[in-house]
Computed example of a mutant assay.
Amino acid sequence: MTKRKSLFIDCSEAAFNCDKAQYNEASFYEKIKIHLHILLCKPCKNYTKKNTKLTKLIAKSNLKTCSEDEKKVWKEEIKNQSTK
């Protein structure tokens, strides 16, 4: 594959690389390919904007998850109440 062809990617690869970039897992080369693609593809540009906004909102919301112990306690409580 020539260098020119390897810089242009399809929409599914652009979306995948966009997702990787949101989690800082994309390489520099992948980020360049994303930027080149979204310059030419309006739907992918919109996807990237929405994905960036979603990532920022999730980070801003300061979500917390339950520990495994808490989940076990809740499951037991649900089980006990459903048998009554």
Results as ranks from 00 to 15, higher is better:
Met1Gln: 06
Met1His: 14
Met1Glu: 14
Arg4Thr: 11
Lys5Met: 03
Lys5Arg: 06
Phe8Lys: 12
Phe8Arg: 09
Ile9Trp: 00
Cys11Tyr: 03
Cys11Gln: 10
Cys11Met: 03
Ala14Ile: 00
Ala14Val: 00
Ala15Thr: 12
Phe16Asn: 05
Cys18Arg: 04
Asp19His: 09
Lys20His: 01
Ala21Phe: 01
Ala21Pro: 02
Asn24Ile: 06
Ser27His: 07
Tyr29Met: 09
Tyr29Ile: 12
Lys31His: 07
Ile32His: 03
Ile32Thr: 05
Ile34Val: 08
His35Tyr: 08
Leu36Ala: 03
His37Asp: 00
His37Asn: 01
Leu39Ala: 09
Leu39Phe: 01
Lys42Phe: 08
Cys44Val: 01
Asn46Gly: 07
Asn46Arg: 11
Asn46Val: 14
Tyr47Thr: 02
Thr48Asp: 14
Thr48Cys: 13
Thr48Ser: 09
Lys49Asp: 08
Lys50Gly: 07
Lys50Arg: 13
Lys50Met: 15
Asn51Gly: 09
Asn51Pro: 07
Thr52Arg: 10
Thr52Trp: 05
Lys53Asn: 14
Lys53Pro: 02
Lys53Met: 11
Leu54Asn: 14
Thr55Trp: 08
Lys56Ser: 15
Leu57Pro: 08
Leu57Met: 14
Leu57Lys: 15
Ile58Thr: 14
Ala59His: 10
Lys60Cys: 04
Lys60Trp: 00
Ser61Thr: 13
Ser61Asn: 14
Asn62Met: 08
Leu63Val: 02
Leu63Lys: 08
Leu63His: 09
Leu63Gly: 00
Leu63Tyr: 07
Lys64Ile: 07
Thr65Ile: 10
Thr65Pro: 01
Glu68Gln: 13
Asp69Gln: 14
Asp69Leu: 12
Lys71Pro: 05
Lys71Leu: 13
Lys71Val: 11
Trp74His: 11
Glu76Ser: 15
Glu76Pro: 05
Glu77Tyr: 11
Glu77Gly: 15
Ile78Ser: 06
Lys79His: 07
Lys79Gly: 12
Asn80Gln: 04
Asn80Cys: 03
Thr83Ser: 10
Thr83Ile: 08
Lys84His: 15
Lys84Gln: 11
